[in-house]
Amino acid sequence: MEKRSFMFRLFQLIGLGLLQVLILNRISLFGYVTPLFYIWMIIRFDTSMNRSAVLLWAFFLGLSIDLFSGTPGLNAASATFIAMLQPAIVKLFVQLDRHDVLIPCSATMGGRSFAGYLLLMITLHHTCYFILRSIPLGDWTVLVLKIVFSTLMTFILMIVTESVTMSSGYKR
């Protein structure tokens, strides 16, 4: 599989950033549920990427979202956090040889492994995000509700996106 170019990633960052800031940030079901779809970019990082590059991309992705949401550092911290764990999490779900290059998706990982990978990544990210956002921690039940339902919402969105891109044969 060929490697993604710098320009591809830059456009992906801008596209996902706009989607998040212009549309998704305004969704707030019952005051709790906000999908954080922008981490799709981190989900799709391939295994051949330099780890420092992974971290830097994630950091700037988060920071650009922060800039337009009035939350300095919040998304940057949580995005960098899962970007650090991403390579290890991929290896949890698939056996990789040293030189395998793999872009995580249902075609390369298998549907069930990919779903598991997605769920774990999203849960980690959302947990980090909502804990940081609610400091000083007050109401635990509300916090847990926010994490659980937002995770579900992002998960559903991503599964839908995955099935659409799969069926149209277009790989984002």
């Binding site: 420092s52 971290l55 950091f59 920071l63 911290a77």
Partner: peptide, 14 residues
């Protein structure tokens, strides 16, 4: 790099 970026974000945040 990871710790550097995290510290940077947390400084921004808090």
């Amino acid at each position: 790099l990871f710790f550097l970026l995290e510290i940077l974000s947390l400084v921004l945040l808090f």
